Amino acid sequence: MDREHRLKRLRFRAWHRGTKEADLLIGGFFDRHHAEWGDDDITLFERLLEEQDVDIMGWATGSQPVPPEYQGTMMKALEALNYVPIAE
C-alpha cells in the first residue's frame, strides 16, 4: 500500500474511534503531525490505533504509564495535547 493510501486510511481510523473525546484527541493529533512522519512513524501510529481508546487517552493525559513500545517522540507529541481544539 502506498504512503498516501496508508495516510488516508489512518486519518479515517483516527477520526472514527467511537467517542467524541477520542476522535478529537487521536484525530486532532493525526491532523497536526502526520505530514512530518516517515514510514516508521506511520507504522507506529498504525500499531497505536490497535490499542484501546481509554489506554491511548490515559497515556496522553499521563493518568496511565506509557508502555515501552510507545515511549518516544510520538508519545511526547501526543502528551502535549496542544492539537485538541478548545471551544471558547
Rank of each mutant, 00 (worst) to 15 (best):
E50G: 15
G38Y: 02
D23Q: 01
L44K: 13
E21P: 06
A14M: 05
L81S: 00
V66K: 00
T61D: 11
D2Y: 09
P85Q: 10
G58L: 03
L25R: 07
E36P: 01
P85L: 06
K8N: 15
F12K: 06
E79A: 15
K8S: 15
A22I: 06
E36V: 10
F30E: 05
T43G: 12
D40N: 07
V84C: 07
E79Q: 15
Q52Y: 12
W37K: 13
L49T: 08
L7G: 05
L10K: 13
P68A: 15
Y83K: 00
G62F: 00
R17E: 03
P68V: 08
G38Q: 07
E69V: 13
G28M: 05
I56S: 12
L7D: 05
A22F: 04
E88A: 10
F29I: 08
I42H: 01
P65E: 10
T61L: 14
L78D: 01
G62C: 01
W37P: 10
W59V: 01
W37N: 10
P65R: 09
V66F: 00
A77E: 12
K20P: 04
R3Q: 15
I42G: 01
S63L: 14
D40W: 02
L81V: 04
R47L: 14
Q52L: 14
H5Y: 08
I56H: 14
E88G: 11
G72R: 03
D53Y: 08
E50K: 13
A14K: 00
A35C: 04
S63T: 14
A35D: 05
V54K: 14
R32F: 14
I86G: 01
A22V: 06
V66Y: 00
M57C: 03
R6A: 13
F29P: 04
D23L: 00
M1G: 06
K8M: 15
T43H: 13
R9G: 07
Q52N: 12
D39H: 09
R13G: 03
W15G: 05
D41E: 13
T61N: 14
E46H: 12
T19N: 06
E69Y: 06
L10R: 11
E51C: 08
W59H: 03
L25G: 08
R13C: 02
L24F: 05
T43W: 11
P85D: 08
L44I: 09
G58A: 11
G72F: 10
G58F: 02
L78Q: 00
R13T: 03
